[in-house]
Computed example of a mutant assay.
Amino acid sequence: MRSDRTGYRRHDPATDTVEYYVFNEVWKSRVCKGFDAAAVGRMLAARGYIERGTEAGREWLVKVNLPSEGRARVVHILPTIWDDEGETA
């Protein structure tokens, strides 16, 4: 089990954007607590807010190399999630 870390954040100074890599376990137990994590992931992927993975049935998860973690399954939250601030669902 990992420490109490949620994941990683990466800042791109060229575009001044931030993207997040949330560990799958944390996504299910903390970020989506009380909700269907798979349904949330599918909805965010459909809207282009997270990177779409290639694993059937887990399209909201991707595998990436992370510092001190190696290859990890994560939800990759893209900067586009902040672009629709004024829209409602």
Score class of each variant (00 low, 15 high):
82 W>A: 15
67 P>H: 15
26 V>H: 10
28 K>M: 07
85 E>G: 08
14 A>M: 10
84 D>P: 04
60 W>L: 03
23 F>A: 09
70 G>Y: 02
45 A>K: 02
10 R>L: 10
72 A>H: 00
66 L>I: 03
13 P>A: 05
83 D>W: 07
51 E>Q: 13
1 M>W: 05
48 G>T: 06
24 N>K: 15
51 E>C: 09
60 W>P: 00
34 G>H: 02
77 I>R: 10
73 R>N: 02
64 V>Q: 05
14 A>L: 11
11 H>M: 11
58 R>N: 03
32 C>H: 01
24 N>Q: 13
41 G>F: 02
40 V>F: 00
19 E>S: 12
85 E>I: 12
26 V>A: 09
64 V>M: 05
55 E>K: 15
49 Y>A: 11
69 E>D: 12
64 V>F: 07
9 R>L: 05
56 A>Y: 13
42 R>G: 04
14 A>N: 15
69 E>S: 11
11 H>Q: 05
53 G>H: 03
83 D>N: 09
42 R>A: 09
11 H>T: 08
7 G>I: 00
26 V>P: 08
43 M>Q: 07
1 M>I: 00
65 N>M: 11
78 L>W: 14
86 G>R: 15
80 T>R: 15
28 K>Q: 12
3 S>F: 00
56 A>M: 12
14 A>H: 07
46 A>S: 12
9 R>G: 07
49 Y>P: 08
78 L>C: 14
71 R>K: 07
39 A>N: 08
9 R>Q: 04
2 R>H: 07
1 M>E: 03
74 V>E: 03
70 G>C: 04
29 S>D: 10
41 G>E: 08
37 A>E: 04
71 R>E: 10
51 E>Y: 09
49 Y>N: 15
55 E>Y: 09
64 V>G: 03
68 S>E: 11
1 M>S: 01
65 N>L: 14
